Simulated assay, not measured.
Amino acid sequence: MVWDRKVRIALLSVASNTILIILKVTAGMLSGSVSIISEAIHSGMDLVASCIAFFSVRHSAKPADKEHPYGHGKIENISGIAEGLLIFVAAGMIILEAIKKIHTPMEIEQAYVGIAVMVGAGIVNLLVSGKLCRVAREEDSMALEADALHLRTDVYTSLGVAVGLVLMKVTGLFILDPIVAILVALFILKKAWSLCKSACDYLLDTKLTDPEEAEIDKILGKYHDKFRDYHKLKTRKSGNMKHIDFHITVDPHVTVAEIHEVIGCLKKDMAEEFKYTRVNVHVDPYREEQSE
């Protein structure tokens, strides 16, 4: 089943984040580096985000029911907002801690341990986020996309902290540690804003993208000889499900069986173009006064 694949990859993210938190906290305590501690906080938020993604992909896979006739897909959009807000909180905590360290910079002990952990964390998150991105793209899952974004930012921030630690060892400027932490937080904030905006767009039933609607128009154009025109096109997205609604104008002499076959072909073509699609077609009779 499709949801089994999504759940498995979400569990992989939970496991990797748990291990990385343990390593980062240990390295942070040994070195006293605020940038490493900030990364541990970041990974803590990543772990919460991974758990949210895990539960949301399981819940979103439930079929439509009497109370939720359009399915449960929007739980993934809600989880995307929750994960974005978690990133904002993590960034705020990092900035506050870094500001304290700017006023009282501390020498970093056992910096090489911190460097090794940060580089290792970056590599692990690069591999896991790559898998998450691939599955999120193939299954059109916002929850997994949000989780992948968390881990991808962790790649950049972990490597950024490692570079900062190297520079501190070379220059002896320990104030670089909190400065790097603040840069990490600002980078995270930018990604969080992008994630929240995207999730909110889908919750507010923003239409599909222009290229997607162009594909819909192209498919409808294939059947232009079967009906007079189409109008009132409305599109939206719920989770990974794309909802497409439109009206077609049909000549009075066309039978119900004929137009039913045309609609079936339209739905089939759209399902082939868009992996998860629900199409609703309303038939309008053509009247002579319409042409006047």
Rank of each mutant, 00 (worst) to 15 (best):
F174G: 02
E139D: 14
L183F: 12
L183M: 15
K169F: 06
L183E: 10
A181K: 08
L85T: 02
L126C: 12
A121Q: 05
G84N: 01
V180T: 11
L96K: 11
S141V: 07
A199Y: 03
R134Y: 14
C196I: 15
E97C: 07
M93W: 02
D201F: 06
A136M: 07
L204F: 08
G164Y: 04
L149E: 06
A121G: 15
L165Y: 04
D140W: 01
L203A: 07
A90N: 01
L96I: 10
E139P: 10
G92K: 05
I115H: 00
A82D: 02
K207Y: 08
I182D: 05
K131A: 14
M142D: 00
D205A: 11
V170H: 07
I99S: 03
A111S: 14
L96Y: 05
G172V: 15
R134Q: 14
L204E: 07
A82V: 03
S141K: 10
F187R: 07
V113I: 15
G122F: 02
A192H: 04
V170K: 05
G172L: 12
Y112H: 08
V161P: 03
G84I: 00
A136T: 05
M93S: 12
I182V: 15
L151Q: 13
L127I: 15
D147V: 02
R152D: 03
V119G: 01
S198Q: 14
D140F: 04
L132K: 09
D140M: 02
I182A: 11
W193M: 11
K197G: 08
D177T: 13
M106Y: 00
I94S: 05
R152Q: 13
E107V: 11
L151E: 06
A90W: 00
L204H: 03
G114N: 12
A116W: 13
A121W: 00
V128M: 05
R137E: 13
R137N: 13
D140K: 09
L96R: 12
V166N: 06
L159V: 05
T206C: 03
R137W: 12
